[in-house]
Design a protein around this nucleic acid. Structure first.
Length: 871
RNA sequence: GCCCCUGUGGCGGAAUUGGUAGACGCGGCAGACUCAAAAUCUGCUGCCCGCAAGGGCGUGCUGGUUCGAGUCCGGCCAGGGGCACCA
């Protein structure tokens, strides 16, 4: 028996079946035990998964299995983020309907995920493209619309010319579409928006409560929301002759203290006033066209030359009517932020300085270091931006001179408010979330446009608005818009022929509330209020850092919106967040530029990497994120076939801290495979010596047995803490320590007889190892558990209890330093008196040698830590 | 440009948060078993000097605080990430 090898292929399939049949992972909402909700970000069904996709599911699974053993009612569901553009592209390329393509992929990926042995409640599975799901989403949309959380507005939007759709700000990365990578263009369109900005302050403040989130993500969200405190005020305008104009110019600034340093005003090319002026000014119209063409492309931002067009208008300085500031239309002013217009203070803003230098405008410093003569303070190529504290003060600023920047701001803001020409204002960088997408494979927006009634939400009784099955993908644009009949409906209010909204929702809407739907996945309503209130927030959410401001911010908004319309009392969806690193793999490239799969290469006799088939040399690239395009992927099927999934799981969890990227190597899986076999062997060696399962603890336990028990219980405490903190690499190291200790005892014992107490301690140790390894290598652990004589499932077994007495040693080893350098060590009772420790330390050979003839000046004894002799 | 994070053996990484640096794993070397190989087991494995006992050096560089610094503080260097005309 002991020499038999563990056969994962047979055992893994058998245990997966056993768990399924016993329905051990199905979760009951009415279970009275405390709840624990663990969730990994659900996958997009893109085709096949590779082993790199498995890491976060395995991590979540370890937590789920551990929490179950700790007595929690654990919810661990899975579903599919199933709407999205790739399905449409497949329809175009391969003439497969998006639905068929998506469901085939779901079937494939589900089978692959099942190979991983995840403890998932599959009865709660959902797919966002299922009418069962998106009908509820449409109901939510209608609720949001009726309570003012959704609005339709015309604005300049990001247009992806490749995907032919609008993108939200969060989906534009470096001026390019997040999916297509194409430079984004500006277009003015009428779109549906979620009013996320209504919650800007709340979303910002509540970040402080998310103390189980990575600081990095919290910081990214804060900065994305981008609160700034400033002043909005308006300038009177005059023409070149000084004639007053009907228009005024509203601006926003956070540096109102620098108002006396203003030398121009500038407005965005998209500013309403600029547009109106352009109607009678061809040169301005041409300038605007030039700015629009530049767009937000990467190249444009990099060149970033400040350009402006003088409108011929002048702004009257609010505190000195003699000062007239030329008004420009400038390419660097954004319509979407503040008022779409600014005043420029070149001395204290780099952009304004660049602009002023180009157009020969005055540069007057109004803030200067207190220890510098104001008369001699000049600005060179760099704006002077210091503003904090007492080291700088106001100059050249009439009544502000000598004040701190902060005092000057207060003074100016007060004067504006007193005069009624301006007010203090908080601005946010966050924009409303545009959700209209001109695509087919998404959730239809349940709205009807009626010429008489305007915008009419589809009545809930008429939901869902189903996607047509017979859309065609043979020409560019939105297939729903092209469909011969789908969009023609009668107005639900007046009955007149009307037009159905043909835009679908951004797929990020789908993923903004799926975690709430899992709580009552078959409910007739959007959610079951009690179920969401009980289960949410998700206790531990696991996913990639790439969603730091996308999905994770949208979901936070969604919970607040759902609360507003009465579906839940919960505001924050995710109590704990963990962002795991990616699995990487070397890349292999043949001389002709073809990428090669890892199984297509081998090492020749000289150790060089060559193509298996031809023996031709291969260029080995550094480890990169596994991706189909570079072929540096490993399939779960192949790994399961050779090593079993437990070895793969163990390897994924070992060595590298979970938040870091981890390199997949053949050698690494082999190492994990050896551990699997070693554990199996050790279990059988112990069984041969140990008493049967459930044998009572002997009355007398000797020194050797106690030492083993200490190792066991210390590891148990450490592993428990490590799993709670998701530090799986350390948990594994601690498991190895007990395995090594057991093997050391076994070696010691050899063939000879074992005392009853030691045999009992060996069984305790090996059982503890099996239970601790259970969440990581669940199939092997079940198999070992049976071998150890248990007839219950490990998946239903409680976590062992630590005996606190065994965590503290009676005698300890104190390092003894002389002048901070370790010279010897002292083995002494844990609670020895300081005087005894000092005496014993000074008599140590290593200490004496280091002391020589020199007198001892001081001895520092840190109880249970260290002794330092100072000479 | 601004902000954040990370730098520890040949490699992945530990270090009770100021107290024996290198746990645990991989790799390597030597040995046992074997006709042989695989598998497995045992020992060694930061660098330098030394037969040894022992000593010196060592956590990116550099200064500081401390009896004591991988850990705290200042300055610098390198790598990674985020934001990028947000007024």
């Amino acid at each position: 028996m002991a020499n038999e090898r563990y056969n994962p292929r047979e055992a893994e399939a058998r245990w997966q079946k056993t768990w399924d049949e016993a329905r051990v992972f199905e979760t009951d909402n009415d279970d009275p035990r405390p709840k624990y909700y663990v969730l990994e970000m659900f996958p997009y069904p893109s085709g096949k998964i590779h082993i790199g996709h498995g890491r976060n599911y395995v991590m979540g699974d370890v937590v789920a299995r551990y929490k179950r053993a700790r007595g929690f009612n654990v919810l661990h569901p899975m579903g599919w983020d199933a709407f999205g553009l790739p399905a449409e592209n497949a329809a175009i390329d391969r003439k497969v309907p998006p639905r068929d393509w998506t469901y085939e992929n779901i079937a494939t990926m589900k089978a692959q995920l099942k190979l991983l042995g995840l403890s998932i409640d599959w009865t709660r599975e959902l797919a966002t493209c299922d009418p069962e799901y998106y009908s509820k989403q449409q109901a939510l949309f209608v609720d949001f619309l009726e309570s003012g959380l959704v609005e339709r507005k015309t604005s300049v939007v990001n247009w992806d010319p490749v995907d032919n759709t609008v993108l939200a700000n969060e989906q534009v990365i470096d001026g390019c579409g997040w999916r297509s990578g194409a430079p984004v263009e500006k277009r003015e369109l009428s779109q549906w928006f979620f009013r996320i900005t209504d919650y800007a302050q709340d979303l910002l403040e509540a970040i402080d409560t998310l103390d189980n989130w990575p600081d990095k993500v919290r910081l990214m969200q804060s900065r994305w929301i981008g609160r700034s405190e400033g002043v909005r005020f308006s300038f009177d305008l005059v023409d070149a002759e000084g004639t007053a104009q009907a228009d005024r110019l509203d601006v926003y600034t956070t540096r109102h203290d620098t108002i006396f340093g203003a030398s121009f005003c500038a407005m965005s090319p998209d500013h309403p006033l600029a547009k109106r002026l352009a109607e009678t000014d061809e040169a301005l119209a041409a300038f605007q066209a030039e700015c629009a063409a530049l767009g937000t492309s990467e190249e444009a931002i990099e060149r970033a030359e400040k350009k402006g067009y003088a409108t011929g208008l002048y702004a009257v300085h609010p505190f000195d009517p003699e000062i007239r500031l030329p008004v420009y239309v400038a390419n660097f002013v954004l319509m979407g932020y503040g008022e779409g217009a600014i005043f420029g203070c070149p001395a204290h803003d780099q952009r304004d300085l660049d602009f002023a230098r180009k157009y020969g405008l005055p540069v007057v410093p109004v803030v200067a270091p207190v220890d510098v003569d104001p008369a001699g303070f000049e600005i060179g190529d760099e704006a002077f931006v210091d503003k904090d504290g007492e080291a700088v003060h106001m100059i050249n600023s009439a009544f502000l001179d000598g004040m701190s920047v902060e005092a000057a701001k207060q003074d100016i803001a007060g004067r504006f408010e007193a005069a009624g020409t301006g007010e203090r204002k908080v601005n946010y960088r966050l924009r409303d979330w545009g959700v209209s997408r001109q695509r087919y494979w998404g959730c239809p927006i349940p709205v009807i446009h009626c010429e008489a009634c305007g915008i009419v939400p589809v009545p809930k009784a008429d939901l869902p608005v189903l996607l047509p099955d017979d859309a065609s993908f043979d020409r560019p644009g939105n297939p729903l818009d092209h469909h011969p009949t789908w969009k023609h409906v009668d107005c639900p209010t007046c009955g007149r022929p009307s037009r159905r909204e043909t835009d679908t929702m951004d797929t990020f809407v789908d993923s903004s509330w799926y975690f709430a739907r899992y709580c009552s996945p078959r409910d007739e309503d959007v959610v079951d209020r009690k179920a969401v209130d009980d289960w949410l927030p998700v206790d531990q959410y696991i996913g990639g850092i790439e969603h730091a401001v996308l999905h994770l911010l949208y979901s936070r908004f969604f919970m607040r919106a759902m609360k507003k319309v009465g579906y839940t009392a919960v505001e924050e969806p995710f109590k704990g967040l963990f962002t795991q690193g990616m699995i990487t793999h070397e890349t292999y490239k043949a001389a002709d530029g073809r990428w090669l799969f890892p199984e297509e290469i081998e090492r020749d006799d000289a150790g060089a990497v060559v193509e298996r088939q031809s023996g031709a040399a291969v260029t080995v690239g550094p480890p990169e994120k596994m991706s189909k395009s570079k072929k540096n992927v490993v399939s779960p099927e192949a790994i399961v076939e050779t090593f079993g999934v437990d070895a793969a799981r163990w390897f994924m969890l070992s060595d590298t801290p979970p938040e870091r990227d981890s390199e997949w190597t053949e050698a690494g899986v082999e190492g994990a495979w050896r551990l699997v076999q070693r554990l199996w062997r050790t279990v059988h060696q112990v069984i041969a010596l140990a008493p049967p399962a459930g044998t009572a603890r002997p009355d007398a336990i000797g020194a050797e047995a106690t030492a083993l028990r200490r190792t066991t219980h210390k590891a148990l405490a450490a592993v428990s803490r490590d799993i709670e903190e998701l530090r799986f690499n350390r948990a594994i190291a601690h498991i190895y320590e007990v395995v090594n200790a057991v093997n050391a005892v076994l070696k010691d014992v050899g063939e000879g007889p074992v005392s009853a107490d030691l045999a009992w301690a060996l069984r305790e140790a090996i059982e503890t190892i099996v239970v601790m390894a259970g969440p990581m290598v669940p199939h092997l652990a079940e198999e070992c558990w049976q071998a150890l004589g248990y007839r219950t499932m490990l998946a239903k077994t409680d976590w062992p209890v630590v005996e606190p007495d065994l965590l503290v040693d009676e005698t300890i080893t104190l390092p003894v330093q002389v002048n901070g350098k370790r010279r010897d060590e002292l083995i002494i009772a844990r609670d020895a008196a300081t005087a005894d420790i000092e005496e014993a330390a000074l008599s140590l050979a290593g200490v004496k040698r280091a002391l020589g003839e020199k007198p001892v000046r001081k001895i520092i004894v840190v109880p249970q830590r260290i002794v330092n002799v100072v000479i």
